[in-house]
Amino acid sequence: MNKKKTSLWERYLTKEIGIEFKACLYFFAILFIYCVYKLTQGSFTADILHMAEMILLCYIICYVQVYLLGNFDESESFGAKEAGGIFICTAVYTGFSLLFDWFERSVAWTAGFAAYIILVYICIFLIYKVKRRIDDKVLNEELEMFQSRPGKEEDTEAEP
């Protein structure tokens, strides 16, 4: 058996990388709708300060998602807990979009942004679900190969 244990630092780092990856995922989703908004307003420039606010907010919300909201976007099934998580996070993103003036307080765009965030959460939930389903298939194929390895007891023939 492998005696190499994962250290506390390595475990923390694995979780931290996972959160940062998630934060980047949500940041790019928000950046996309922000860029679409800017383009519709006839602007080809994005505010660096807005982008900094977005990434920082995504990072904080992803921390909350993982440590306080049970990592709901990676859940096995969709229930009240997951719907609650999506509602809370969408409300926070929408609130901060108003506070930081990302969509110049446009009611229509802010409402659209909230709907878009809900859609992003549902898509990410489905993506993780599909990923796990593929992983299941790979794992069970490898398990089958492992169990039929040469030299296993079942390969031994005993003659009377």
């Binding site: 990592n71 990676e74 859940s75 096995e76 993780y128 796990r132 389903r133 992983d135 299941d136 794992l139 069970n140 398990l143 169990q147």
Partner: peptide
Amino acid sequence: IERLKSLP
């Protein structure tokens, strides 16, 4: 092991 299932 009969079957493996990937979890979150």
